[in-house]
């Protein structure tokens, strides 16, 4: 099936099946939820069905890593990797409380062991490696475990020649692991260098919010970078910048749309269209698009004659 045909078929299909949630947290038990932006009272099940996007004003609610994976992966195809990795508190860190206690508290709130979930799945039938960060766990911060899980996922993608998709949502590096957290920036970027040199595809999706050490490493290294509407994305936080330059920043500063205007992301895609867009991009870049650039053979797409080629449009 060629890309255009696939796309035409796909469009006929009914919208996404109803999502079953793994966790019955208070948030989902509540029957109603008010939109933060337009103040509309929304029936929770309707909101869930619309992938946590307000049907009235398109406000994108923050979602967790598992919900993200359910939205992107074909039903029943996700296999989690490295679920048992936990931090070993290398600095024996303590501020007003110990790091160990803070981790327990974070897990109690989020139901997760760490701030990223990684694994493989199919996206519209395309086998892919996916990692999704969860801001609800320790502010989505990156310490040793987040770095290690992302690197292992990247290595798996390299070994099996699969596309890599990372959905970021993070306040940055995790202070409680000090220099180890900082070094995860180098560790993840270094692994992505290998992936890139092997000609493999990495799509970075930036969701509300993505900052600091995560933006300054893997989040900004995608071959294609997609941001979610309204997501705030940057290196330094707004308050720090305002204190430094002693002036007010524009209201839309560091939003996905502002970044698009400043050439930092390829596109802003609504969550309800994200899976389709991803599948399209993966299929577009899949397989031997053109012949080996080092060979003498003509650079036609393999298995297609020039006359059969249809322009791929969207």
């Amino acid at each position: 099936m060629d890309l255009k045909e696939w796309f035409a078929n796909r469009k006929k299909k009914p919208p996404v099946e109803e999502v079953k949630l793994p966790l019955a947290t208070d948030e989902y038990c509540a029957l109603w939820k008010q939109c933060f932006q337009c103040r509309e009272l929304l029936y929770t099940s309707v909101l869930i069905q619309n992938q946590h996007v307000c049907p009235k004003c398109q406000y994108h609610f923050r979602i967790g890593a598992w919900e993200r994976i359910q939205q992107l992966a074909d039903t029943g195809t996700f296999k989690e990797f490295d679920a048992g990795l936990v931090s070993s508190d290398p600095l024996n860190f303590q501020d007003t409380d110990t790091y160990v206690n803070r981790q327990k508290e974070a897990s109690r709130k989020s139901g997760l062991k760490e701030a990223v979930i990684t694994g493989e799945c199919e996206i519209e039938g395309e086998r892919s490696c996916v990692g999704a960060m969860d801001f609800g766990h320790f502010g989505g911060s990156m310490g040793s475990v987040v770095g290690e899980k992302i690197v292992r996922l990247t290595e798996f993608a390299l070994e099996h020649r699969l596309p890599l998709i990372l959905v970021s949502s993070s306040g940055g590096a995790r202070m409680q692991e000090g220099i180890f957290s900082l070094m995860q920036l180098a560790k993840t970027s270094s692994a992505l260098k290998d992936l890139s040199d092997a000609g493999l595809m990495y799509i970075s999706i930036l969701s509300e919010p993505t900052y600091g050490g995560v933006t300054a490493s893997f989040a900004m290294l995608g071959d294609i970078i997609i941001a979610e509407p309204g997501a705030r994305i940057g290196f330094a936080g707004r308050r720090v910048i305002e204190q430094t330059i002693r002036q007010k920043l524009p209201a839309d500063f560091q939003t996905a749309e502002y970044l698009l205007k400043h050439g930092q992301v390829d596109m802003v895609v609504a969550r309800t269209d994200l899976k389709m867009k991803l599948a399209y991009l993966i299929k577009f870049h899949a397989g031997p698009g053109v012949a080996d650039l080092n060979s003498e053979a003509p650079t036609n797409p393999v298995g297609e004659r020039e006359s059969d080629r249809k322009p791929v449009t969207r």
């Binding site: 490295d82 475990v145 180890f180």
Partner: peptide
Amino acid sequence: QKKFRQIGAFVE
């Protein structure tokens, strides 16, 4: 690459 690959503190 090996140098930075090894940095991290976790248990499995």
